[in-house]
């Protein structure tokens, strides 16, 4: 059977409860904003394909983690099988920003010796009033914690949603091309599938998105 993707990345979305993890994922995969969405029990996931260059297909396995604090232990096993992490905070809730550093540390300790690459997302940037974290603070923290980028995102207004996933995927892909990410048989974070077919744009068609 032909493998329709060239690479598969596991991506996990983390952050304090109600910073908007599920709604970001929902906006990205379904294209809509749904305020009344069910928060996942333990863990939920979506699948999405991303096309590069234009003949590289990357399948993204997107793990959405539970909102409620006590489900966190369940989510840990899914961190292990991820190579990328979208770490989110709410720009209108200072304490969610303050927890970013410990979130990252927790994740890195947990996935050792496998690597994990982060983008930092300051969510709900559409809020005109009530902002408690400045953009410059987000930028500085992402730099300090060695993250790939800091993005200010609004799921509601559809600002920087696609860019978040693309920045992370592109970043990981580039690092992999530079040989900075080893693959291992027992690690599902980054899996190599079909060899990249340089002259076959047909791959793109045969591997259309299958989420839902």
């Amino acid at each position: 059977m032909q493998v329709p993707w060239n690479f598969r990345f596991g991506i996990v979305i983390l952050g304090d409860s109600s910073v908007g993890k599920s709604s970001l994922l929902h906006r990205y995969t379904e294209g809509t904003f749904d305020e009344s969405r069910q928060s996942p029990l333990g863990i939920d996931f979506k699948v999405s394909n991303m096309y590069f260059d234009p003949d590289v297909v990357i399948k993204l396995l997107l793990w959405d983690t539970a909102g409620q604090e006590r489900f966190r232990s369940i989510c840990k096993s899914y961190m292990r099988n991820s190579v990328g992490c979208i770490l989110m905070f709410d720009v209108s809730q200072r304490q969610t920003f303050d927890r970013v550093r410990s979130w990252q540390q927790e994740v890195l300790d947990y996935v050792k010796p496998n690597p994990m690459f982060f983008v930092l997302v300051g969510h709900k940037c559409d809020l005109a009033v009530g902002r408690q974290v400045r953009k410059s603070e987000g930028d500085a923290l992402a730099k300090k914690l060695n993250m790939l980028a800091y993005l200010e995102v609004s799921t509601k207004e559809n600002i920087n949603v696609k860019e978040t996933f693309e920045t992370l995927t592109r970043g990981i892909y580039n690092l992999f091309q530079q040989g900075k990410i080893p693959t291992r048989g027992d690690w599902q974070g980054l899996t190599v599938g079909a060899t990249v077919q340089k002259e076959s744009p047909v791959t793109k068609k045969s591997a259309c998105c299958n989420c839902g």
Partner: peptide, 11 residues
């Protein structure tokens, strides 16, 4: 396929 049971059992 490394599919663990918690994915469906939890719910």
């Amino acid at each position: 396929n490394s599919l663990s049971s918690d994915i469906y059992l939890i719910d």
